[in-house]
Design a protein around this nucleic acid. Structure first.
Lengths: 201, 201
DNA sequence: ACCTCCCCGTGACACCTGTCATCCGCCGGC
DNA sequence: GCCGGCGGATGACAGGTGTCACGGGGAGGT
């Protein structure tokens, strides 16, 4: 019997996944949480062996949660399950110590198999995403560029971004100009969108 | 026995919801589709009585699908289930003839109840969203403003938008300026984001 | 020590953008 | 018939934006 922890901020999806996985005779959902920063504690308390982690969660994202599990509970394996198949996510999830990466587009019946493989010590990675992840390569953005792009995501003017991060407008424009060049975009707004799609933020 | 159709583009979520609802003794999932434009046909073929529709779907969105069901199969009721609790969505879903509106944050056990109420002819609407929907009011945007905002969502420069819709740059700027005023934003990019959050697009 | 890379800043320049005034044609309501 | 609202367009203007050149400081590698 494989003991599972589910982490997803959407209660409906979490409950539905629990129903789906509990149908399997060799799987048992022993814990459910809706926040990333509750994963380690719940996994420890419930004695979970495999954690199913969504990326988009309040408190802490699923990738950081996988890293925390890796650090605090070395025997427990993580399987990241997410809506968005962003290549950068795969790389970061694996680097964070996750054993698998599955998108929510995959057929429901394959999920239980993925869980079994991860539990057995194997890696499970969506083949298309793995290829994309290799093609795109790691993020070429510097720390500042990444930070400024996240603030540019909502279309704020440069002046607002500069005030938020306590930098001069000129510096902000220089960093964003570099990011625009690296993403091949024409505006900071487009650059921010592209970087997010690739999982660079 | 209530006959259900599920429409959600994420196969994993769709399968999981099916597992969850099939646990209820008085519910039966008789059809599953991953595209909005397959809903009517599948509902007709399977004899579904209630359709669970996600909004974000390829082919046709869940709100338009609800309208199509209303038109083609008057006896079938629709329950819109979505990730994003955007006030404008509630209004548009109800106007499209949906009998209920539920966000994916709601506890899993309440979903079956919502289905039963909708099947019984009652309306099911998230109370918080209903209130927000009334406060925000309907969209103040004109048709062109809405169209241009959707093209501005990705941060494209005005020149690109103008070329895409075959308008002069000046006209595009005028419409976007009006939209910026109506949304209280400072840039077209921010205006587009705000409009989308409110379900005006 | 030297080089490289990142970070921060300034100044200048061309271009893009948001705003406003003003015009036109069209349609629906009164 | 008149008026208001929408769509489309132009011109002008202030201010925002992207780019480039240049400088300076600090951390890390050889």
């Amino acid at each position: 019997m494989i003991r599972l922890l589910l982490a997803d901020d959407q209660a409906l999806v979490r409950g539905a996944l629990a129903a789906l996985l509990d149908l399997e005779s060799d799987l048992e959902v022993v814990a459910q949480v809706g926040r990333g920063d509750e994963v380690v504690e719940a996994a420890r308390a419930s004695g979970a062996e495999v954690c199913l982690l969504d990326i988009e969660m309040p408190g802490m994202n699923g990738i950081d949660a996988a890293a925390a599990v890796r650090r605090e509970l070395p025997g427990v394996r993580s399987l990241v399950v997410t809506t968005f198949g962003r290549p950068g996510y795969v790389r970061r999830a694996i680097e964070a110590g996750a054993s698998g990466f599955v998108v929510k587009d995959t057929p429901a019946r394959q999920l239980a198999d993925a869980v079994r493989r991860v539990h057995a010590g194997l890696r499970v990675i969506d083949p298309d995403l793995a290829a994309e992840s290799l093609i795109d390569g790691p993020s070429p953005l510097t720390g500042r560029e990444r930070e400024l792009l996240t603030h540019a995501l909502d279309g704020s003017p440069v002046s607002a971004i500069a005030a938020r991060v306590h930098l001069s407008e000129g510096t902000v424009r220089n960093h964003l100009s570099a990011a625009i060049g690296k993403t091949g975009a024409a505006t900071r707004s487009e650059a921010a969108r592209i970087a997010q799609e690739r999982g660079w933020l």
